[in-house]
Amino acid sequence: MIASMGVTRNQHITVVTGGARGIGAAVCTRLAADGHDVVIGFRAAEDRAEAVAEAVRAAGARAVTVRMDTADPDDVDRLFDAAAELGPVTGLVNNAGIVGPVGRLVDLPVDELPRVYAVNVVGVLLCARRAARDMLGRGGVIVNISSGAATLGSPNEYVHYAGSKAAVDAITVGLAKELGPDGIRVNCVAPGTIWTEIHADPERPAKVAERVPLGRAGEPEEIAGAVAWLLSDDASYTTGAILRVAGGM
């Protein structure tokens, strides 16, 4: 489904994948407040995507919602084609991601692992590829969402997820070097444990808090602030950075 409303035309047009909830939703509303029109990619939660779109419009920006799967090349093209209807795309936030099964690797069902890498790695590559193609000759900004797990490893919980996010870190560094001459900045935000619905155990953030130097889990809005800075002109000389927002972990 594609839906758009609003008359305000902003300089920035930013695509956010996984924008219907959690960090993605917080990013969308923060960017709208900062003057971005927002294109919200979502996979299943249509009602929540529309609620985020309404919040974007209430901030005076335009919003488009697109049901899509980041691991599907045709869906990715459809997402960016919808964004192009608003004007030239200036930004991408590669936020869509999944954890997959939780537990020791030796105990995990093999058939669930490819989907984690399809979304977390292939999806990031496909969206970055299309965004870069659209930005060539004009410049732009790509912000990938990684995880503190990429360096901590997440033993006994989701080593497979940590590995997929380590790949996102490597993709960020490589693309920053590849696309820098084209005026396209590529950076990454690596959140720690954040209060979102991605956790299989809803109380996990509270349980992890005692190990965090700042003594608490983070809020989605704190990640959104980091993303907004990387998309802003204040970060104009920042590329290839992996900004850890993890409370000291």
Score class of each variant (00 low, 15 high):
Ala3Thr: 03
Met5Thr: 14
Gly6Glu: 09
Val7Asp: 12
Arg9Cys: 08
His12Asp: 12
Arg21Leu: 02
Val27Gln: 13
Val27Arg: 10
Cys28Ala: 07
Thr29Pro: 09
Val39Ser: 02
Ala45Asn: 00
Val52Glu: 07
Val56Ile: 09
Arg57Phe: 09
Arg62Glu: 06
Ala63Met: 13
Val64Asp: 05
Arg67Glu: 07
Thr70Lys: 08
Asp72Lys: 04
Pro73Lys: 09
Pro73Gly: 09
Asp75Cys: 12
Arg78Ala: 12
Leu79Tyr: 13
Phe80Ser: 14
Asp81Ser: 15
Ala83Phe: 15
Glu85Pro: 04
Leu86Ile: 12
Gly91Trp: 14
Leu92Thr: 12
Asn94Thr: 04
Ile98Asn: 04
Val99Arg: 02
Val106Ser: 15
Pro109Asn: 02
Val110Asn: 05
Glu112Gln: 15
Pro114Thr: 02
Ala118Pro: 00
Val121Cys: 13
Val122Phe: 05
Ala131Ser: 11
Asp134Gln: 15
Met135Val: 11
Leu136Ile: 03
Gly140His: 10
Val141Asp: 10
Val143Leu: 04
Val143Pro: 00
Asn144Trp: 08
Ser146Cys: 15
Ser154Trp: 15
Tyr158Phe: 10
Ser164Leu: 14
Ala166His: 03
Ala166Trp: 03
Val168Met: 07
Val168Trp: 03
Gly174Ser: 15
Leu175Asp: 00
Ala190Asn: 00
Pro191His: 04
Ile194Met: 14
Thr196Cys: 06
His199Pro: 01
His199Thr: 10
Asp201Gln: 12
Pro205Asn: 03
Val208Ile: 08
Arg216Val: 03
Arg216Cys: 03
Ala217Asn: 02
Glu222Ile: 02
Leu231Ile: 08
Tyr237Pro: 06
Gly240Val: 00
Val245Trp: 00
